[in-house]
Each structure stands twice: as C-alpha cells, then as structure tokens.
Simulated scan of single mutants.
Amino acid sequence: MTGLGAIFLPQNPPERLRSIARAADEAGLEQLWLWEDCFLNGGVSAAAAALAWTTRLRVGIGILPVPLRNVALTAMEVATLHRMFGDRAIVGVGHGVQEWMKQVGVKAASPMTMLREQATALRALLNGESVTTDGRYVQLEQVKLDWPPEQPPALLVGATGPKTLRLTGELGDGTILTGGTSPDGVRAAREHIGAPDGHQLVVFLPAALGPTAADRMARQQERYGMDFPGVAGDSQAVAETVALFAEAGATTVVLQPTVDDPDPEGFVRAVATEVRPLVG
C-alpha cells in the first residue's frame, strides 16, 4: 500500500505546529513532514515537539542540510529522536540549497563529497560503531554514540540530479524527491537510483483542496514554475494523481499544501479522512 502524508510548511509560524500535528494525529494521518528551510523552522526541534504532542503520527524531516551540522551532532539528534519515539521519527539528509549554504558560510566546494562522507559516517554512528575517518569534510577520531538507536533507522537522502540519485541508491535506504517532480521524473529517478526493490522513494506532491484550489495552485505555479505543478481539485482528483506517482515507483507520497492554504488543519484532516480511503 502506498504511504500517504502531508507537509507542515515552515512558512507557518512554529507555534502553529501544535494544532496541525494534533489535527493530523487525531484524524489518523500516517505521516507529517517538516522542512528545515533557511531561515524558518528548526527541523529537529520542530520534529521533537510534534512527536511529543502526538501518539501515532510519524514525523519526517525532509531534509537536514548536511553542511549545517557536524555529523556527530546529527547522529546524536537522530539517535535521541529514535530512542524517545522509535520509528515514528523519520529523518532525511541532503545537500541543502546551495545559495543558503553560501549565505551562512558553509557551502562545500564539492557537495557530493560532503554528502558521501556525511552519509557514510552517519550510518556507521547510528549503527553503534566507533568511527575514525579523515575525509575532506568529515574528520572523526574514535567517535561512538553512548546512546545509539536500539534499531538502526533507515537512512533517507534527498536528491534531484542524476549523480546524487545514484549516491542515494548506493548509500541510502531511501530517497526523497522534491515537490514539482513529475511521474516521469519519478521513473527516471528510479533508473538513476538503481537500488533494489526495498529502497524507499518519498515524493512531495503539491496539492490543493477546496473551492479556491485551482486559483491557489495557479498562483503557486506562477511564482515557482515547477516542472509538475501538482494537483488541484477534490479528494478524488488528488487520489488519482497519487496513484500515478505510485505507479511510477513512489512508495510514499506526501501532499504539499499551497503556502496560502486557508486551513492547514483542515488540509491534514482531509488527506487522512478523504484522500486516504481512495488511495490503494
């Protein structure tokens, strides 16, 4: 069965997260995803709060930009989330937006090398290993978590281009694709990833529900010009589009509301109670 979730956009103030997370949990939504976009909400702090406010909801961070954190700190934070909340915590890592990374003085000369070194070290640390490495960007000397996760979590990596997609297939248990990816883009990503059938593929799908859906989606497309603008309409239209992505190879589709959605709590409820029953 295709996994289904929704996104809490960081354009919402952080204090709005509580009501949206609780609405999602009470409605039976499977997953609520957060973004660590600069310079909005902190991903780990927001995820920890959302997990603490809920009982069943899985909370994903898509993604933590690896240049912003030492990999030992990332491992400590991910391990802590998993020790406290088990597999309800989902964490993805990635390059980050290069313009933002430059803005804060951490842009890597070789983002691919940095991502490879970080992902390799992160997996080993979360496996409870003692890690010593002297890479271009990651230098660790006998670093070992005192409280690793009881079960190593899946390592998800965000990717867009072919080289990064191949890297996610090599190093990751799953890949996160950004909003605006088309079903054909999902198929192409699958080819680049080249991973076995168990590899997760999470896709963000722009979606708008309600009487103003078409107008809001048109404004969003005018602003961002995505390759695939998303879907606007009723729950049936959204479910049919989710099915297209599932057929293309997505294992989880996460619906991304428009920034000007008038009712974010209503959006997550509708995804859980109206769209979910229509998705196989």
Score class of each variant (00 low, 15 high):
D87A: 09
M226N: 01
P183G: 05
N127A: 15
K102S: 03
K102F: 07
E26W: 09
D146S: 13
A48W: 00
Q256V: 03
I20A: 12
M76N: 07
G135K: 07
G249R: 00
P152M: 12
V131H: 07
E247G: 12
R116T: 14
T258G: 00
G210Q: 10
G179D: 03
A49M: 15
L171H: 11
G169R: 00
L205M: 01
Q221N: 07
A237I: 02
A47H: 02
A218P: 04
V66M: 14
L64I: 15
F85V: 11
M76D: 09
G158E: 08
L17T: 00
G194I: 03
R88A: 03
L126C: 14
T133A: 11
V254Q: 06
G172T: 09
L140A: 03
L9F: 11
W147M: 15
F267H: 05
A124H: 06
E129M: 12
E141M: 09
G266S: 00
T273Q: 07
I20G: 01
A154I: 00
V253R: 08
H199R: 09
V106N: 01
D184A: 14
A6V: 07
V59W: 13
W33D: 10
Q139D: 10
V186R: 07
V157L: 14
L57H: 00
W147S: 15
F245R: 00
K107T: 08
L209K: 04
L255A: 03
E26V: 03
A72L: 13
L177H: 00
H192I: 04
L171M: 06
Q200Y: 09
N70S: 13
L81M: 10
R276T: 11
P183Y: 01
G5F: 10
P183W: 10
A72R: 12
T55S: 15
A52V: 13
R187D: 04
P13I: 02
T175F: 06
Q221M: 04
E117S: 02
L68D: 13
L209E: 06
A246H: 13
R16L: 10
P206S: 07
K107V: 02
Q200D: 14
L171E: 02
I63H: 06
L4Q: 14
A208P: 04
P262H: 14
H192L: 07
Q256G: 05
P262V: 14
W53H: 12
N70R: 15
G86W: 05
A47I: 07
L68P: 01
T164G: 11
T178N: 10
F267N: 06
P183K: 06
